[in-house]
């Protein structure tokens, strides 16, 4: 059970972690990183599953299904898009010696 100040500490530490990770990032990685963090907040799927998991009644279940559907889209889309962007960095590096 997370309550009060414990939660506040978790919020604070996580916020600093996020801030530290992003500072000093080269511009070329801004887009992939935005996409990557877009994938990471796909963890909302876990929450959506919990919400749907204890939903009762038609309204709750309907909203819960919508939540899971959207969250699943966030996770899968976020992963594929980020992976495709980063894939290019790999190819360009492999070609680099050849093209010089």
């Amino acid at each position: 059970m997370i309550t009060g100040f414990l939660a506040l500490y978790i919020f604070m530490l996580a916020a600093f972690t996020g801030y530290e990770i992003i500072s000093r990032v080269p511009v070329i990685l801004h887009t992939p990183l935005m996409s990557g963090s877009n994938f990471v907040h796909g963890i909302v799927l876990v929450g959506a599953m919990v919400a749907l998991g204890h939903a009762t009644g038609a309204v709750e279940i309907t909203i819960g299904v919508v939540a899971v559907l959207l969250a699943a889209g966030n996770v899968a889309g976020g992963y594929v898009v980020t992976e495709r962007m980063l894939e290019m960095f790999k190819t360009s590096k492999q070609q680099k010696p050849a093209s010089k």
Partner: peptide, 21 residues
Amino acid sequence: VLQNEAMIIAGMVVGAAGTLL
């Protein structure tokens, strides 16, 4: 709200990182 630590941490990290970005 759901008492889910993974969501809190991942969400907050993205929130802070996204704000800086």
